[in-house]
Design a binder for these strands. Sequence first.
DNA 1: GCACTAATTTAGGCTAGCCTAAAAAATTCT
DNA 2: AGAATTTTTTAGGCTAGCCTAAATTAGTGC
Lengths: 224, 224
Amino acid sequence: MPTSESVDDYLRAILELSGKSEERVSSNGLATRLGVRAASVTGMLQKLAAQRPPLVLYEKHRGVRLSAAGMRRAWEIVRHHRLLELFLHDVLKYSWDEVHEEAERLEHFISERFEDRVAAILGDPEVDPHGHVIPHRNGTIPVREEVPLVEWPIGKPAVLSSVSDRDPAALRELQRLGLVPGSGLVVDESKPNASLLVRLSGQKRQIRLSIELALHVAVDASRI
Amino acid sequence: MPTSESVDDYLRAILELSGKSEERVSSNGLATRLGVRAASVTGMLQKLAAQRPPLVLYEKHRGVRLSAAGMRRAWEIVRHHRLLELFLHDVLKYSWDEVHEEAERLEHFISERFEDRVAAILGDPEVDPHGHVIPHRNGTIPVREEVPLVEWPIGKPAVLSSVSDRDPAALRELQRLGLVPGSGLVVDESKPNASLLVRLSGQKRQIRLSIELALHVAVDASRI
DNA sequence: GCACTAATTTAGGCTAGCCTAAAAAATTCT
DNA sequence: AGAATTTTTTAGGCTAGCCTAAATTAGTGC
Ligand SMILES: [Mn+2]
Ligand SMILES: [Mn+2]
Ligand SMILES: [Mn+2]
Ligand SMILES: [Mn+2]
């Protein structure tokens, strides 16, 4: 069962919108994420659910979630995406904010051989340039506990684990501020004007972070 | 005027079938090369000729050739293809016979940035793994005089310049025999049973080369 | 020049994936 | 609960690129 570029995009969008808890995803949510109309989403979901084996579990008016086969394919595409991002960054010297767009296109077209060779060159890496874990070749997903920075307790030291990759301008700003995966930091204060005051480890200077920007950031929650 | 994968394939096929002399290409020839029906070719050619600016010059029943715009786009795709082949071979350690298929797919989807970074990593290379010249970034095509091995005079020393990349089995066989770009050789005899007897420079052993295999090989004709 | 054959084009259809507009179902509000 | 609103689905259409079958044109042999 080969999948088209569009089908791959739907599966990955369902995976990403459903979150850790694998909740059902709405047609509207998918339409917004994919930049198509809700009617187009309904049509596609009906097709994916009718495949044997089905790629999604779909009940009219009740949202959709991935089947086992859909889950497998979605994570496969995510592995392509994250390996490509790291490859573009480390080997082809793309900047942090440039990798996502190119990876989003190429993820659909590289072969398993390409995937394997890139993984080998990069030394079977564990995370992409934005700090997201890279699924293993065999389909297993490394677990990692993360919390959105906006939910992290005031005053408790944290380690930045990942940043969202979809907004190049935000990425450039975060890099400028030194907020990259691995950075240690403390949230000093959550201001009423919808911003956070944070300090990087070993620095006295406070950084004022808008909520919109802070929403792009997650920290390591392994010892919450 | 963005071009689709199919359109790119048509343009590249017209370029490759029309040869140095830029002869008109027939619908049937294109259909065979592209693995589609002649009726589909006619439909596509009419569409490409109707674009403003047109990508091909097409006269009913009289074949087709590339317009200036079509030529530009076709060589652009060829540059992608050949850079990708060299990159897959040199960086990702693909073998000689594996690069073509992957490059054929990816050539349509890499960005100009990707093209530039790959070219930079490879040091602005002049030829791909099969000995084919790589068009320059600005669109100019390096000239090189080549002659099919089967037309090369008996007994005259030659240098192998390129081999066709579309037949993996033939490529493996040629590599096994030591017939790679740069190899010096002499044709000793053209046998009536449709084969050539050749010797590699500095070797006494004769190699028997079927005409089918020999048709895959071209030699440097700069001093014919 | 005419008949036959080969190449090409036209006509009509199909699928994937998108769209708009209208209908129907679910949810929210009073 | 019943009305109003929002979400989702259905219905009908469109384009790109492919197909088969039927014309048409070009080329060949006599
Ligand atoms: Mn990404
Ligand atoms: Mn995509
Ligand atoms: Mn090739
Ligand atoms: Mn292609």
